[in-house]
Design a protein around this nucleic acid. Sequence first.
DNA 1: TTATTGAGTGTAAAATTGACACTTAAAATG
DNA 2: CATTTTAAGTGTCAATTTTACACTCAATAA
Lengths: 234, 234
Amino acid sequence: MVEQYKQQHPYLVALDSIIFGFDGESLKVLLVKRGLEEQTWSLMGGWLQPDESLEQAATRILFELTGLTNVYLEQLNAFGDPQRDPIVRTVSVAYFSLVKVADYASKLTEAFQARWFSIYDLPPLLFDHGDMVDLAIRRLRYKAALHPIGFELLPEKFTIPQLKKLYDAIYNTEFDKRNFSRKILSTNLLIKLDEKQKGFSKRGAFFYQVDMPRYQQLTHSLLNVIPSPDAISW
Amino acid sequence: MVEQYKQQHPYLVALDSIIFGFDGESLKVLLVKRGLEEQTWSLMGGWLQPDESLEQAATRILFELTGLTNVYLEQLNAFGDPQRDPIVRTVSVAYFSLVKVADYASKLTEAFQARWFSIYDLPPLLFDHGDMVDLAIRRLRYKAALHPIGFELLPEKFTIPQLKKLYDAIYNTEFDKRNFSRKILSTNLLIKLDEKQKGFSKRGAFFYQVDMPRYQQLTHSLLNVIPSPDAISW
DNA sequence: TTATTGAGTGTAAAATTGACACTTAAAATG
DNA sequence: CATTTTAAGTGTCAATTTTACACTCAATAA
């Protein structure tokens, strides 16, 4: 009876994560040097262990390679081309992750030999990691147009201009600031703080933070977060 | 160097497909009896073979178990809970599929021991197949709200009332037929035929078919296909 | 011929979107 | 201290889209 199982070929199962960050100017992806003989830039990845689920494994690997915890993590796609890893056939489940760069930036690059790359200036990547990144960017654009996940890339407290810059970066465009803030504020997701940002502009912009209970309600609802989402496709 | 690979545990990799169909009244999922000792209703599934990609495997299995070819197929999610298959640890990549029931209905149930179940009246399912179906339904609702994929579930020629019934079934609601047809027609995806449907209503409804070139352009674009998509979430 | 049934269509009010420009707060400058 | 500079912040109007809602029409059946 269990014969049916015994005849089957097992494969290695890997997890790879596309980690997005935003440094205030442009959208970045976190990469590490990896490979057997030649070192190639590659995604954060590792192997599935016997006692863990896919999401647990992705979370563990992220922590081991970056020290990051409590980050936004979502399954992107499973990649299983027979030739994708030339050494051993491996199925890789890719996750994408949104992190608040500011909190970790220094730690990451020092201790972990990791580097942030602009999504418009990526080095050649290991295996099919380039495809994974492409898909992740498309998915991020798609998702961020409909769900208020942008906040995951910003610090706890942020200003509306910062948020607009983030969306400008994600969509490689420039939104109208009047329409943008009207739209964002109409979601009622943001709580205005008394505090103002110092040092960046003369006048200073008010800080906001996410209304967490409302955010929980709405993460999975459809909101039109950006103007003309019709232009987005995947 | 390749040591790194040798130390890893391999796992079986399966593919499972949630196959949606529409019989004119309600949304259905195609299931088969499967299992070792006790036969349980389960999704169409099979094992990944050494020489095929995930999508190829899903397509092959679909064909072997149902005879279906040329169907809409999209990766849903990879499921990898350590306990999901109690016999051997297996990672399953789930796909969801939209088929035109009419073309195949009889063949399927006869030759392949398969049965269509209303999504509101599912039997207990094998392993985590219930979770897979739940997720697939949510994904279908999400996707069909934004992309004109509903046609994949209807015959080549269909009427607007048929299409509305399909959407009513997907969302378990009743859309306003005036607003619905205005919205659908405004996409310019439908070509009106001269022919009318006979036998169903006295007056008869005009048949339409999809404008294929335009459909190709638009499948991946965001269209608001249904009213108030804000109500949909996943 | 008349009745029945589902197909097909229009309108007006409300809400949302998109385009567009001036004022203001605060620091920097001289 | 007055002036300049820079980015923040805000409002309006026209166009479009959405929603709610009800009657006529075509064809078959009686």
